[in-house]
């Protein structure tokens, strides 16, 4: 329990937690408008990682339909990240059109939307597997050019490693969060979005094209998901088409912890879970994957509306 360990864990927790926050905000945006959890979000996360990999590295492995295919051009990392995220946003729009809109227009049971979005997730994940196989793809070490892998500080005689990727995770996440905050709080589009979230019928009467804003919300949600997928993929490798599933579920824990539908809640929830995982003693590290879900149970017991959620009102 020395100071260096404390600092190292804090750093690890903040960097991974900020990516959880970005990812979970994708759930929150859709939930606040439709009151539905988009279970295809984890698949979009996976897709984002694969798209960026295809754009930046451009080589595929020996399995799947695209075995040994090389892309004619590759992009530097940052443009690849952005293009990958935009394409993921488009995938998010496709999810809305395929899994949500047809059901919404018929006024179907919301449970069905859950299953149809899971169906879309199944399609996306298996399509990836069909195309590029179940191999693990790692981004090359020189993806950030000449930047060093890590800078090591000596604190109290103990080393504290600041990995370049951690700075990038934290920085990119902060930029995304600030951009989203600005969009929602300061622009006309964001105002319309908030109005739609408050009451879609009233918003529609006030001349807001609700369906267009729902589609836009899915775009932003997919963008956030794809970006988070890339960041996690660069950090830990793209571990097969199913690697988004566990992050997808962890994201659910984040939004419940923070409070369903609350944007600051999703950020706080992400950071708390990231820090919780980082501060887990090393002899319990095999339980790391359970941290998020244990926290979810704990919050349901003591404060079911989540850390920053409003009171759970019952409207009649």
């Amino acid at each position: 329990m020395d100071f260096a360990w404390l600092l190292q864990s804090l750093l690890n927790g903040l960097s991974i937690g900020s990516v959880y926050a970005v990812f979970a905000l994708g759930y929150t945006l859709v939930f606040s408008i439709l009151g539905i959890i988009n279970f295809a979000h984890g698949a979009v996360f996976t897709l984002g990682a694969y798209l960026t990999y295809a754009l930046a590295v451009g080589r595929f492995g020996i399995n799947g339909l695209l075995a040994d295919v090389t892309m004619p051009v590759t992009l530097p990392f940052v443009p690849a990240l952005l293009v990958g995220a935009v394409l993921s946003g488009l995938a998010g729009m496709a999810v809305e059109r395929l899994a949500f809109k047809p059901l919404r227009q018929r006024g179907a049971d919301p449970l069905l939307a859950l299953v149809s979005s899971l169906g879309v997730a199944l399609i996306v994940v298996n399509l990836i597997q069909y195309l590029v196989g179940a191999e693990i793809y790692s981004f090359p070490a020189d993806i950030f050019g000449d930047l060093p892998m890590a800078v090591i500080f000596q604190i109290g005689g103990k080393p504290v490693a600041v990995r370049t990727i951690q700075i990038i995770l934290f920085g990119a996440s902060l930029v995304m969060l600030a951009g989203l905050g600005w969009f929602i709080g300061r622009t006309r589009g964001g105002k319309a979005l908030r109005a739609t979230a408050e009451n879609a019928d009233t918003a529609s009467l006030l001349g807001i094209s609700v369906n267009r804003f729902i589609l836009g919300t899915f775009f932003i949600s997919g963008l956030l998901g794809g970006l988070a997928g890339t960041l996690i993929g660069v950090s830990f490798g793209v571990a097969g088409p199913y690697f988004g599933v566990s992050y997808g579920l962890k994201g659910l824990a984040v939004i419940v912890l923070g409070g369903l539908g609350s944007i600051p809640g999703a950020v706080l929830g992400g950071l708390v879970i990231g820090l919780g995982e980082a501060f887990l003693p090393s002899d319990m590290s095999s339980y790391k994957e359970a941290v998020a879900f244990v926290l979810l149970f704990a919050i349901l017991l003591v404060r079911p509306q989540g850390l920053l959620g409003g009171r759970l009102e019952q409207k009649v």
């Binding site: 939307a113 299953v115 399509l127 069909y130």
Partner: peptide, 15 residues
């Protein structure tokens, strides 16, 4: 290999 894709399509179509 592509049958799981079809499985997903069946899920969505059924909904």
């Amino acid at each position: 290999d592509s049958r799981m894709i079809l499985n997903g399509i069946v899920l969505v179509a059924a909904c």
